[in-house]
């Protein structure tokens, strides 16, 4: 199945997402805890999909939006799924503008996560 990189500063969220995705038959090829690390790892592992929390530490240096931007520059075909809280709509919109494929709001509903991941990976015209 697909190689997925999980970006989230909370170990809890990473584990949760990983568990659901692995159960779906995907491979978690990398995990990152901040934006900078996410970009670095993206360069080397080139995942099929990135799940990205947009509010993360090291915000001054590079924030989640910055990471989306960097990743999209590295690979315009990169598939990024934003995982965010409901109050972050403007940031989510910005991420979509930069090329993020979809978003999920926390609390993450496992069923929705599965559907969204499946839909991004099978986008017929994407």
């Amino acid at each position: 199945m697909a190689k997925i990189m999980i970006v989230d500063d909370a170990l809890f969220m990473r584990q949760m997402l990983a568990k659901i995705l692995i159960a779906e038959g995907h491979e978690i090829c990398a995990e990152a805890t901040n934006a900078k690390e996410a970009v670095e790892k993206f360069k080397t592992v080139r995942p099929d999909l990135v799940t990205m929390d947009i509010v993360m530490p090291l915000m001054e240096e590079l924030d989640g939006i910055g990471a989306v931007n960097e990743i999209m520059k590295l690979d315009p075909k990169a598939k990024i799924l934003i995982v965010s809280a409901m109050s972050q709509q403007p940031i989510v919109v910005e991420a979509i503008r930069l090329g993020a494929r979809d978003f999920l709001s926390k609390p993450v509903n496992p069923q929705r996560l599965k559907e969204v991941v499946k839909s991004i990976l099978t986008e017929p015209l994407g």
Partner: peptide, 22 residues
Amino acid sequence: IESLNEIFRCTHTLKGMSATMG
């Protein structure tokens, strides 16, 4: 601002985590 951002981030993450845990 740095501290404010940090508080925001922590609160935000806490919210996400707790909501997910119910």
